[in-house]
Structure formats: C-alpha cells, structure tokens
Design a protein around this nucleic acid. Sequence first.
DNA 1: TATTTAGTCTATAGTTTATATAGGTTTTAT
DNA 2: ATAAAACCTATATAAACTATAGACTAAATA
Lengths: 145, 145
Amino acid sequence: MLSKKTQYAFHALIHLAERADQGPVLISEIAQEKNISIKFLENILLELKNAGMLGSKKGKGGGYYLLKPPKEIALAKIIRLLDGPIALLPCVSLNYYERCENCRDEAVCGLHEVMSKVRDASLKLLENKSLKDILTKNVPIPKLG
Amino acid sequence: MLSKKTQYAFHALIHLAERADQGPVLISEIAQEKNISIKFLENILLELKNAGMLGSKKGKGGGYYLLKPPKEIALAKIIRLLDGPIALLPCVSLNYYERCENCRDEAVCGLHEVMSKVRDASLKLLENKSLKDILTKNVPIPKLG
DNA sequence: TATTTAGTCTATAGTTTATATAGGTTTTAT
DNA sequence: ATAAAACCTATATAAACTATAGACTAAATA
C-alpha cells in the first residue's frame, strides 16, 4: 500500500491540477476540501516543492501551484518521490535496486522473475497515466473564495 | 513494497516447498540458508502456522512443513496473510476495503479508476502464480544434514 | 514606511507500527 | 533423564505517521 503521505499528495495534486492557471492555492483550502491535517499537508507540499514539482508564493495571496502542466506529471513520479520503489521487492526495483540478501543467485530466483512481471504491469499504467488522467470526472470546478 | 516480514516469508516458503515430502524442516536451517534472523523467522513461521498454511512438529526431529502442495498456494494469499492489502489504496482493495476519506465521491474519482487497474494487473499475476512457480530454477536440491 | 495580516518554512515531539532480540517454557525422541 | 526442537512472552530499537509551536517572509494598507 501507498503511505498516507503519498495518498494525501495525490489528492492535493489533483486539487492543484483542477485549479491550474488560477493562481496559487491555499494549503488550508486543499486541507479542508480533501479532509487532510493542514500541518501534515504543509510538510508534504513543501517536500514536493523542494523536489521541483510545485512552486509556492509567500505572503498574502500566496499558496502552492503546479510548475508543469498536469499532463506532464506521471503518477509513477509522484509515488517514487514520496514512497520510493514501486516494485514489491528491492531486488526488482528499477530506481531503487538493492541486491537480495536472501537468495544466492537472483538469476535463478523464481520470485525475482514473477515480481519483475508485477512491476512491469504496474509501471505500464503508472508511467503512462498522468495527473491529467485522474482528474475528477464530469465535475465543473468552481473557483472557491 | 512488501514488508520484510513478507519478503522473508516468501523465501522461507520457497525453502519449505523445495523440501516438501522430506519431513519437518528446522527453523535454523531455513534461517541459515536464507540469511534471515532466526528469531524473527520464528515469529513469521508461527504466524503462518496459526493461519493454517504450515504444520509443525515439536521436539527432536521437529520442524515446519507445508500443509498443502506448493501448487495450491497462491502468491497473493501469502501477501494478504502477512501484509494485508495488495492494492495501492484502501479504497480499491478487494479484501481490505476502506472508504476513501479524502474524496467526496469514489464514483467520479479518477485516481480510484487507475488504481483499480493497477490492482487488477497485479492480481492477475499474483493470484495465478503459486509457490511451485517460483521455485529455484535448474538447481538440484540436496537433502541437508 | 510602519504595521498588520496571511501565509510559508523549520524544527521538534508524541504516537503508532514495523522490525528485531532475548530468555524462558513445553513437547518429543532417544 | 536428557537433549533438541518448536513455542511463548516480553522487551528493545527503528521507522513512519501525526500533530504542534514558533520563526520567517511577503503583501496590503493606512
């Protein structure tokens, strides 16, 4: 399962995507709309900002906003940023590979083979779907405030 | 990622499967062969026993053994037993469903839809592959001791 | 330009869950 | 009886999660 952090990040990013090009969005607005602890959300958005995914503006009229169009932000990228590996085992991770300490030879490990396939199947979806693809369907988004 | 517990369980079960019909296998043998802390492994095997997946025999000549043929133990079952949900989000889990607290309506949540597909893709593999399918390839298994 | 206000940024602390260890108890075979 | 093995309970350690307090920054306005 994805961590709470990543789950919240998804919902927050969806909210930001739905309000793209409408100027900075308040943390408090996202927190209220998505039912997330405002302070925890604060940390998450900051992490996303430091990773280059979000921009922010301080002071009155400030808030957070996407730095790229939603279409260009793959779901896989969000998961990797906050949760790390998408694979079920370290030894089949593309981006966070670690040698398996429990088997003598990965090349003949049957587990390795199956888990690689699971990873590929997941990645096929998560790499090709973007924030734009997961926006709330059939719902007009009013500007709050 | 799968928890350490589940990762260790997989390797232990593979070991047991490779020695099926050879009588009880010592915890210490598995621990040494798979490089797992013997005490942690003890807890894991006990949990698998209490869940009905393993049998055990106490005392001299004792150990653990599979209660069913490896072919009949699906990988998904092992994961669910120790790690819980296979899905990435609680709201798309088949066996551990929880309502999403962060979105107003699951029916129109785009995240829900994509994550359901990821779940299905993973399950297709994990439900259909068994312990038998992940045994070490091309390796004759000698009886130790 | 001083002040107020709205907001981000930083640090930290408490709580829970995951991982691991230690020691003692019970059962079984010989 | 003795030794070997699983079993049980308690505890220690580390990581993840949640929450809180206060510092800092930018904008608005008088």
